[in-house]
């Protein structure tokens, strides 16, 4: 049997707060194929971010198996997880998390300098449409522009997997749409596997695969045979 690119198998994440046990993720199962554009949706507190964090090697699962491109992430040591993040993962956050004291270009370089086969930082900046803003500091950029820098920073690492946690959460409608468009384009043109977290159900038509999370479990898994370009979606 052909192994899926990403495998989540009965993954649990349990936080213990004194006497209380919080089951943030309670047995999640799903697979994602290479080059798929996946959207993870669900209400607040459903465990979306925890899943993404475990997938991104920022957090370890309590039990279950997580396999990414043949690597068993769930059994990695802290050092291996760092390596995994370094070479395989690109992260995009809601609040961009750019280093304030570096220019846009330098923020991208910061990431690319530690990778094995990074993309050219300046070219990546051109690709995300920031040719003219390369030498500006984050504080001189708009929110949308900052998020583009964050995406460029993730892309320049040439990762296997692009993980985005509410990438449009802090942006207005139009800008948010542009960012999603950029992510979708990246997926289509580069064959990049992209996973986006959102609580906005209206976005689901743009994905190849939609994973609905509820109470720490996969509630429903949809596959769109014909995903819609984000420009055609209104919400």
């Amino acid at each position: 049997m052909n192994e899926p690119f990403i495998l989540f198998e009965n993954v649990q994440k349990i936080y213990r707060m004194g006497e209380v046990e919080i089951r943030a993720v309670n047995g999640a199962d799903f697979t994602i194929d290479k080059g798929e554009f996946t959207v993870i949706v669900g209400p607040s507190g459903a465990g979306k971010t925890t899943i993404l964090n475990m997938l991104g090697g920022m957090d370890q699962c309590t039990s279950g198996r997580i396999i990414v491109d043949g690597r068993e992430v769930s059994k990695s040591t802290s050092r291996q997880l760092t390596e995994y993040r370094r070479y395989d993962i690109g992260f995009v956050f809601q609040f961009y998390n750019l280093v304030q004291n570096l220019t846009a270009l330098e923020n991208v370089e910061l990431a690319s300098q530690i990778c094995k086969n990074p993309l050219d930082a300046a070219e990546t900046m051109v690709e995300v449409g920031l040719k003219e803003r390369m030498n500006n500091f984050p504080s001189q950029l708009s929110g949308g522009e900052q998020q583009r820098v964050a995406i460029a920073r993730a892309l320049a690492k040439n990762p296997k997997l692009l993980l985005c946690d509410e990438p449009t959460g802090a942006l207005d409608y139009v800008t948010g749409k542009q960012i999603l468009g950029l992510l979708q384009k990246t997926c289509r043109e580069r064959g990049m596997t992209v996973i986006v977290i959102t609580h906005n159900l209206a976005l689901t038509p743009m994905a190849d695969k939609v994973i609905h999370i509820r109470n720490g479990k996969v509630d429903k898994l949809e596959i769109n045979r014909e995903p819609v370009p984000v420009e055609q979606i209104e919400w």
């Binding site: 995994y84 998390n97 910061l110 530690i114």
Partner: peptide, 16 residues
Amino acid sequence: IRELATLKVLGFYDGE
């Protein structure tokens, strides 16, 4: 701390 956490997410080793 945010800046340092970002570096960690980007895959900087603890030493780096």
